[in-house]
Design a protein around this nucleic acid. Sequence first.
DNA 1: CCTTCCAACCGTGTTTTCACCCTTTTTTAA
DNA 2: TTAAAAAAGGGTGAAAACACGGTTGGAAGG
Lengths: 215, 215
Amino acid sequence: MPSIVLVDDHSLLRNGLSSLVESQGNTVLFEADNGKEFLEKLDKNNLPDIVLMDINMPEMDGFQTTQWLKTNHPEIKVLALSMYDNETSIIRMLKCGARGYILKDSEPAELKAAIDALVNQGFYYSDLVSGKLMHAINKMDDDGDGLKTLVPLSDRETDFLKHSCSELTYKEIADKMFVSPRTIDGYRDALFEKLHLKTRVGLVMYAIKNGIVNV
Amino acid sequence: MPSIVLVDDHSLLRNGLSSLVESQGNTVLFEADNGKEFLEKLDKNNLPDIVLMDINMPEMDGFQTTQWLKTNHPEIKVLALSMYDNETSIIRMLKCGARGYILKDSEPAELKAAIDALVNQGFYYSDLVSGKLMHAINKMDDDGDGLKTLVPLSDRETDFLKHSCSELTYKEIADKMFVSPRTIDGYRDALFEKLHLKTRVGLVMYAIKNGIVNV
DNA sequence: CCTTCCAACCGTGTTTTCACCCTTTTTTAA
DNA sequence: TTAAAAAAGGGTGAAAACACGGTTGGAAGG
């Protein structure tokens, strides 16, 4: 009987999920509202087999938390649970050490299948995940830049990206970030290059899809 | 024992929610994936007391479905269930006839309180909703335009808004919509006016927050 | 019938955004 | 410790976005 921990900031979903996975024959060790709370509640003498991990959370998100688990408790298997099926999130989550990825609009049967697969085979790659992986690999070949989908953004760039999702002009953003407008130009151009975009709207959509800003 | 129907496209959440509300002493009549499915499943001889209604759904969203219920079965009480706490959604949902509005990250206790309130008093206005309503009223006084938050957009404007959430230039959008770039200018200016915005990024953020485009 | 309203369209001018090419300073890594 | 990379700042010009003030033609209502 696999022991499971739920990490998600939507407590209605989390509670419901809790009864669901228990009815499917699992034990829920505890629940946490976000990554930070999860770390606090984690008991070294009673570790879970599986963590059902949301991605977008306040305080400490799914990427960070999964990464932490990868280095500190690699034996704990993470099943990512997300609202969205965008490629970058999937790839990034797998990069951080997740063993599977399912959407919140999956059927309960798929959740069960995923948990079983994690217990028995150690991983669960749904058609969705396989498809996205395949697509990502194809794109890698296209532009010879395999890192494309998982470009790390610097703190300043992330900060700039957040400010871009507003009606501020670049000059105003420069003021808020205490740098010259030219520097902002630099951040923007760097992001255009990295993310293969060409307009500010593109930046905004990227930031939202990847949870850099919260809508 | 109040009978309840769940309408939400995230079946994991829906299933979990189902066991949760049953454990709280309610009957779940049925579940539906979206508004359209809900209408199909609705049995005139066995109507629910309460509908737990998600807002963002494919096919037919929470606004439309609630509106339909308001005209066809006003005795059925709708409790809106949303990810986001943005004012326009709340106001619009109440306008459509919802008797309450709770967030998906509420505690189960709040869900129970809301359902009880709907049964006993016919409505549930949480602090969140009251606060937003108050704020909306204050803003009404500010600009003398009470309709501000619930401006109806024309089909063409909505269409334009969707296209705006891309890297297309206005000229390219004009081509796609088979009108002159000047007309697009007009749509944009009209939306700026209606929504109190001044940049394209503002439009994009509005479209996303109000579910006009799906991320 | 006339007026009002609205959608579509037009012109002009300013501001913002984007592209491209550049230097200096600081940090990182071989 | 020296080479390379990253971060910051810069200039110019073209393209896109925005502001404002118009025109036209058709539908709705007094």
